[in-house]
Amino acid sequence: MSEQAAVGKVNTNLAARTTLIKLFIFSVSLGIVPISSYFGSLKYVWNGNATFAAITAVVSANVVLVAYIISSLLDDRQTASVISEKTPLEAKKKQ
């Protein structure tokens, strides 16, 4: 019983660590991607038109945010499926 608890605790710590790393990566990309897309599109795509470059930066920031939301939902779905798989086994053990 204590081995299962230790494995569960290790899995919980690993999940928390990967979630923190994912948050850090998306936070850094939320700062870098819009700024680089603004200046890159300002110089190479829109030939100095700041309005279109700003729109490009806003769209790229929204793409990063949507990617984070989708990643979080998929991660939450995987966690929920792991929990639902464990629940019937624990119910059988108690009987």
Rank of each mutant, 00 (worst) to 15 (best):
E85D: 15
V45W: 09
N11T: 11
A15K: 08
S27P: 00
I25W: 06
S81H: 10
A16D: 13
I21M: 06
A61G: 04
S60T: 14
V45G: 07
E85L: 11
N11R: 12
V28L: 15
T18G: 00
V28W: 13
L73V: 06
V10M: 09
R77W: 08
I69F: 12
L42V: 05
K22E: 05
V10D: 08
L73D: 02
V64L: 02
I35D: 08
F39Y: 14
T18L: 09
T51E: 12
L20P: 04
G48Q: 05
Q4P: 00
K94W: 08
A5L: 14
Q4W: 07
A61T: 02
A5V: 13
L23G: 10
A54L: 07
T51W: 07
L74A: 07
Q95H: 09
A50I: 11
G8R: 01
I35N: 08
D76C: 01
L89G: 13
A61L: 11
V64T: 07
T87G: 02
T18V: 11
G40D: 02
T56H: 07
I35C: 04
S84L: 14
F24D: 11
V59H: 05
A16H: 10
V7K: 13
S72L: 11
S84N: 15
G31N: 06
E90P: 02
N47W: 05
S71W: 03
A15T: 11
S36K: 11
M1Y: 06
A15C: 03
V58M: 02
A50L: 03
S71P: 01
S84C: 07
L89R: 11
Y38Q: 02
V33I: 15
I21Y: 09
D76T: 05
K92M: 10
A6G: 00
Y44R: 12
G48A: 03
L74F: 08
L74C: 06
L89I: 12
K22H: 06
I69D: 03
D76G: 06
A5H: 05
Q78N: 09
L89S: 09
A5K: 11
T12E: 15
L23M: 12
A15L: 10
D76V: 00
S2Y: 05
T12P: 07
V7I: 14
Y44E: 13
R17Q: 12
L23F: 12
A61D: 00
K93D: 10
E3S: 04
S60N: 08
F52V: 04
K9I: 06
D75Q: 07
Y68L: 11
N47G: 10
Q95N: 10
I55P: 03
A6T: 06
V28A: 15
V63L: 14
V63A: 12
V82G: 00
S29M: 14
P88K: 04
Y38S: 00
S29F: 13
S27V: 03
V63R: 01
V7M: 10
G48R: 05
A67W: 02
N13C: 06
V33Y: 03
V10T: 10
K9V: 07
A57W: 03
I21W: 06
L65D: 02
Q95E: 12
I25E: 05
K93S: 11
Q78C: 01
A91N: 07
V58I: 13
K86T: 11
Y68S: 04
V33N: 01
N62L: 15
L73M: 10
I21F: 09
S81F: 10
M1L: 07
N62P: 00
L73C: 06
K9F: 10
